[in-house]
Simulated assay, not measured.
Amino acid sequence: MTKYSVPREQYESEWSLAELRGDSARMAPHWAVPAEAAPAPVSPSLIHGVVVPPASARLIEATPEYGG
Rank of each mutant, 00 (worst) to 15 (best):
G67F: 05
S13F: 03
E19M: 08
E14Y: 05
A62G: 15
A25N: 07
R8C: 00
T63W: 06
S13C: 01
A32Q: 06
W15Q: 12
L59S: 13
P29M: 02
S24L: 15
A40Y: 00
E61Y: 13
E65A: 15
P41C: 04
V6Y: 05
T2E: 10
K3W: 11
E14S: 13
V42T: 14
H48Y: 06
P44L: 07
E14K: 11
L17E: 13
L46N: 14
G67S: 12
H30L: 15
V33L: 10
Y66A: 14
G67P: 01
E65Y: 09
I60Y: 12
V33C: 05
E19T: 05
A25K: 10
A57K: 12
A38V: 05
Y4H: 09
R8Y: 04
A35M: 08
W31V: 07
M27Q: 13
A25T: 05
V6K: 10
R26I: 03
E65R: 14
P41W: 06
V6A: 04
A57R: 14
A62Y: 06
M1Q: 05
G22S: 14
P54E: 01
Y66R: 07
E61P: 01
L17K: 14
H30F: 12
S56R: 04
P39L: 01
G22C: 02
G68R: 15
D23R: 15
A57E: 12
S56V: 10
A18N: 03
P64G: 00
A28W: 06
P34N: 04
L59G: 13
G49E: 00
K3Y: 11
W31N: 01
A37S: 14
A25R: 13
S45C: 03
E36W: 01
P44I: 05
L46C: 05
V51Y: 06
W15H: 11
M1V: 07
V51T: 08
P39F: 00
S56C: 05
T2F: 12
P7M: 04
H30D: 12
P39R: 03
S56K: 07
G67C: 09
S16F: 08
A37V: 12
I47R: 01
Y4E: 02
H30S: 11
P34T: 03
V51G: 00
E65P: 00
P44K: 08
A35F: 02
S45F: 07
E12M: 14
P64T: 00
S45Y: 09
A62M: 12
L46S: 14
A37C: 03
W31D: 03
R58N: 04
E12V: 07
E9K: 14
S43W: 10
S45M: 13
A38S: 09
G22P: 00
W15C: 01
H48E: 14
R26C: 02
R21V: 01
R58Q: 11
L20A: 15
D23V: 07
I47S: 00
V33H: 07
